[in-house]
Design a binder for these strands. Structure first.
Lengths: 113, 113
DNA sequence: CGGATATATAACCGCAATGGAATGTATGGG
DNA sequence: CCCATACATTCCATTGCGGTTATATATCCG
């Protein structure tokens, strides 16, 4: 019972979904593109399957994996109240720059310098 | 340099953001609501800070944590091409139910039975 | 039927991340 | 000046996850 967010934390799984966004793929194709071993790919696919993010179509020994985007709507729903914030209101950058503790780290990286 | 998705995989951190969605909070408040120890809370807050998802305002010994939703736009951007799919086209449910391998598992849980 | 192909599963390992206890640091109050 | 408060950091143990190797299962081909 893992949340889509949990499943998508893995970069590899995100790449799989991105690949399936174009068209259904065989496990072998995905394995090639990901540069993983076949069992590695299969395990990620299993996680995606159990999260309902992909479905399988059997074709002899082959398995066509295809995208099932529905569960992503949950993520979208979670995101909704936040989207309003960064879209609508202008963020007072200087305000919290001023209040920044004088640590040497970079607590708030800007996205594009 | 962790992606928002990576940071949000943690349920606790999602709850923190949800709490900060209402109003800024002190570490103590968050600790109470989360049922964690104070250092535990602080560590999650550190992760959120480094991801740019929260900012801190110092007030004597207290620290007011507030939400910074901007990095979530990256998640939103990743989500965009998928959103079109589950929103626009009707998903052929029977189609892949038909192609479902006869395993005992439940590869595709429906969201509301 | 026997081997090759395509994929899944199991067993195992290493690492990173999480959570708790103890400690460090800064600020305010008496 | 000393102690309490509020929070951060460090250290440590546990665990869960991702990756690989080896093995199992199913299907096609000759």
């Amino acid at each position: 019972m893992s949340s889509p967010l949990d499943v998508l934390a893995e970069p590899v799984r995100r790449r799989i979904l991105d690949l399936l966004l174009e068209r259904p793929r065989l496990v072998g194709e995905l394995t090639d593109e990901l540069g993983l071993t076949q069992p590695g790919t299969s395990k990620h696919l299993r996680v995606l399957r159990e999260a309902g993010l992909v479905t399988v179509r059997r074709d002899a020994q082959r398995r066509w994996y295809e995208l099932r985007p529905e569960p992503l709507s949950e993520l979208d729903a979670w995101l909704a109240p936040y989207r309003r914030l960064w879209a609508g209101r202008l963020y007072a950058l200087e305000d919290h720059l001023d209040a920044m503790p004088d640590e040497d780290g970079e607590p708030c990286p800007k996205e594009s310098p």
